[in-house]
């Protein structure tokens, strides 16, 4: 769980860095260069297989863990502590993860799928910059992206800290630092991601 989670966090950093190239306001020149590299480099494409494998492993492990844990108290409490003893998002990882998954389906269907299909059939990549420009004119697409980024943020607020605690780093020396870096990451990365559809929708780009 923790290892696949951290791998996905590393993926987010790379993905976020590459896509943020659109904010050079150069009509997508630098972004397309970076996207071309990511789309054709053999090493990256091999890692992409690993990414899907890890994502699926993460989902299967996470969801089966959540269902198993839920079954360990067959008789539920009539009154439960709710948020008095733990934050809601730490108890909602499976729900937040599933929302991220729903977002991912749309996201892959809109960009990754058509691009790979085009590469297979014509050997050419699509212009993802103009694709974004078109797709992000639709308010409902932007809304789903908001939902995805919002869920990701809360998933990470717990997930980042949790992964390091699982690996045994949660002692008094590191705990405060891990928690703060985790919260910072969970705010900054999803905001940068959401700025992308928003920027196209608002015609800043």
């Amino acid at each position: 769980m923790s290892l696949t989670g951290i791998f996905l966090i590393v993926f987010l950093v790379v993905h976020c860095y590459v896509n943020a190239q659109i904010f050079y306001f150069d009509g997508g020149v630098r972004f397309l260069e970076a996207a071309h590299f990511m789309g054709t480099n053999l090493l990256i494409r091999t890692t992409e297989i690993g990414l899907f494998a890890f994502l699926i492993l993460h989902m299967v492990q996470g969801l089966s863990l959540a269902f198993k844990n839920r079954s360990r108290r067959s008789q539920k409490y009539a009154v439960s502590a709710g948020s008095a003893t733990s934050p809601w998002y730490s108890r909602s990882m499976a729900l937040l993860g599933t929302l991220i998954l729903l977002f991912l389906v749309l996201h892959l269907y809109k960009f990754w799928g058509p691009n790979r299909l085009n590469q297979l059939t014509t050997g050419e990549e699509l212009n993802l910059y103009t694709a974004m420009k078109e797709e992000f004119q639709m308010a409902w697409v932007v809304a789903v992206y908001f939902l995805g980024c919002f869920s990701l943020a809360w998933h990470l607020v717990h997930g980042f800290y949790s992964a390091f605690q699982t690996l045994g780093f949660g002692n008094s020396r590191y705990k405060g630092m891990i928690k703060s870096v985790g919260i910072g990451f969970s705010i900054v990365v999803p905001i940068i991601f959401f700025m992308m559809p928003l920027a196209f929708f608002m015609h800043w780009l």
């Binding site: 863990l65 198993k68 360990r72 502590a81 008095a84 003893t85 717990h158």
Partner: peptide, 12 residues
């Protein structure tokens, strides 16, 4: 169950 670092134990 298995620990998912929720932390309600420490609180109680």
């Amino acid at each position: 169950g298995s620990c998912t670092n929720i932390g309600a134990c420490e609180a109680e």
